[in-house]
Design a protein around this nucleic acid. Sequence first.
DNA 1: CAGATGTCAGAAATACTGATATGG
DNA 2: CCCATATCAGTAGTTCTGACATCT
Lengths: 140, 140
Amino acid sequence: MAPDTSSIGYLVKHAQAALHSRMEDALRPLGLSVSQYACMVLVHEQPGISASELARGAFVTRQSMNALLRALIERGLVRRPVRADTGRALPTELTATGTELLGRAEILVSEVQDRMLSRLAAAERRALEGSLLACIDALA
Amino acid sequence: MAPDTSSIGYLVKHAQAALHSRMEDALRPLGLSVSQYACMVLVHEQPGISASELARGAFVTRQSMNALLRALIERGLVRRPVRADTGRALPTELTATGTELLGRAEILVSEVQDRMLSRLAAAERRALEGSLLACIDALA
DNA sequence: CAGATGTCAGAAATACTGATATGG
DNA sequence: CCCATATCAGTAGTTCTGACATCT
């Protein structure tokens, strides 16, 4: 009988929890939470993205994403128009300050991820990526 | 620069979120949340475990675990003595009803995990387990 | 009309912080 | 004394649910 604390499911949760904890530690000096960092990464990759798309990409609810965005706007890291040119979606963009802070955050997060992968060879890292993608697809 | 939505960190979070969502769906008919299921698995594996140990094993705070335990005790799935024979820790155990319900939950969770791994060969599954363990150790 | 988005509100579960007491 | 455990209180952020209006 498999479903126990040595199961794949528990390992995935354990790895995610450990990574999240280390990322919070790394980002704390910048005053950023992991969710805020994820939001800024998504905005940087997809300028003009809507809050609903951000919520799905960051695995939080629309309400939480809106609260999170308000804080980032207040700090001048992110910018949103008050009115949409077309449709309902309000396109979100990084400010110059936000882009600069994200750059520093990415360095810190890279260090954490490098540490996580430090005991794996290059081929093992590629295999891990591929297997995780296969797991995600199978559950979709 | 690597830290984006195609990074290993994002894949781990994505896989965990997808798995959690499917587990919630599978356990809902039994009236169990994923956290409650994790708690019961831990109690089953380690009869007499303390609430603090349960909290660490389920990746929640002691306060949340105590609230969670009260609900499970109320439903008659778990049992805790009012006074400790020795020390402060109150040893937790499953009731007969709890053991029976956990058995049914494990079957449902097994199906979800099997689905997650359905596109991986046996060797790939072993490699995934090993790599996740290496990631967890490296972040510890 | 259906679908996606933004917004609001209330209830519930959770996390964080700090404090206190008990026992090894 | 130090440490882990249990418990309580307050604050805050998050989720869930439902609802409603706007725009394609």
